[in-house]
Amino acid sequence: MRLGAMFGDMFRSLFKRPVTELYPFRKEPAPSRLRGALTYNPAKCTGCQLCVKDCPSNAIELITIDKANKRFVMRYYMDRCTFCAQCVQNCRFGCLGMSNEQWEMAALNKEAFTVHYGREEDLQKLLSTNPHE
């Protein structure tokens, strides 16, 4: 039976280093396994579509530019992504990954969330045929 059981904690806290992190003025590196935005390596992709098949929220589209030469462009809807990494798990060729650096993705408009990954020339080809994209 006592009163003010936490006064001691409060008093001691006065003399301790503050626990508050000073983000965004001082940024700590994120943990190595953090699941941030999806990364795509077009050189390794074979277009097997396994990543698309199991995505729970339809966040990935794989657009075929030239099937014979294995040229694909990935359209990634960051706003739909649930960052579950099932696509990374599914990819047998190691062409997908999740960045632990790109996780501050807040934006003031939604257009910023649809991104295209692929070789530079493929991207240009795609964007020139679809001027609205």
């Binding site: 953090l34 960051m78 706003d79 996780w103 807040a106 408009n109």
Partner: peptide, 22 residues
């Protein structure tokens, strides 16, 4: 909507980042 913060869920830092951007 004026600001969007993607993530499932976003880290608290990302939420702060979104608010700071707004």
């Amino acid at each position: 909507v004026d600001a969007y913060i993607p993530g499932c869920p976003p880290r608290p830092e990302a939420i702060i980042d979104g608010l700071v951007k707004l």
